[in-house]
Design a protein around this nucleic acid. Structure first.
Ligand SMILES: [Zn+2]
Ligand SMILES: [Zn+2]
Ligand SMILES: [Zn+2]
Ligand SMILES: [Zn+2]
Lengths: 143, 143
DNA sequence: TCTCCCAGTGATATACTGTATCGTCTAGCT
DNA sequence: AGCTAGACGATACAGTATATCACTGGGAGA
């Protein structure tokens, strides 16, 4: 079952409608290999025969992010971009050369943050971890 | 030597001018206990007798951030805010109740990320770590 | 202390980004 | 097929950030 099929299934199960624009956006998103913004997606869609309204793009991306099918990461330039994700706890490695994102799960931060929280009397509820560097293919290309 | 004096010294050493607006902004920044945005600082300054131009506020904050005298953190609402910082490696705990930020240094992420980088053949150059939760005083107040 | 030069300022205009509104349409159910 | 609430999208609007450019004043050197 592909990513877009999974998303459509879950959305439908929650009572959301599977409209044409949503299907088209879902399909188009998969073309991206690097984080993208709502404006970029909108502009790219307008280059094609697909004509989707600005509001719909923003609404759809936010809906997907709330369901964790999309995630926010910091792009090397500084702003936030969306990347395709899976529900559950996960973090990202962002390549500053090509922008590609590598996911990894199972971070062992809980113990580290647990000790810290106890020491500072701070109740930690969630954390944001992200690494910036150079991916394998860009290392090869650069050397 | 206070934070603003340190900043002024470094800026001067690099050939930047110590202008009136810069001094006033530096002084005002220290009033904040929670992350602030450029627009908020601008509005707050306009409430006082200090009249600084919009462009100057944006330029000054960016200048300070480049020198790591200011840092960006995620505010509970989602956007980025500035907090006073020191140059060097450091991370933040952000309270979702009062917004206050607690810094901590010396994270032991290097080993964790080191193993990961080797496994994924990803050269990690920097990382972003931030925790969201409830600070001590807000825990007391809430219970 | 005085002069001069240019980094810095700030008013204005403009571009960019995101949201509110609201009439229309259609997906999905009966 | 018909109904209806959810979704769409054109438009207007609000908020955020940057470009421009004439002017100012910080500070180095005379
Ligand atoms: Zn790469
Ligand atoms: Zn961010
Ligand atoms: Zn608090
Ligand atoms: Zn660290």
């Amino acid at each position: 079952m592909s990513w877009s099929e999974q998303v459509l299934t879950e959305l439908s199960a929650e009572g959301h409608r599977l409209t044409g624009p949503r299907r088209q956006i879902l399909e188009y998103i998969l073309r991206y290999t690097a984080p993208f913004t709502a404006e970029e997606l909108l502009a790219d869609l307008h280059q094609t025969e697909v004509q989707v309204g600005r509001a719909t793009v923003y609404r759809t991306l936010e809906l997907l992010q709330q369901h964790e099918w999309l995630r926010l990461v910091h792009r090397p330039e500084g702003e936030h971009g969306y990347v395709v994700g899976e529900p559950g706890h996960q973090h990202h490695l962002v390549c500053r050369a090509c922008g590609k994102v590598t996911m990894f799960e199972g971070c062992e931060l809980e113990t580290l943050l647990g000790g810290l929280a106890e020491r500072l009397h701070f109740r930690i509820e969630s954390h944001w971890l992200e690494a910036l560097g150079v991916c394998r293919s860009c290392q090869v290309a650069g050397s």
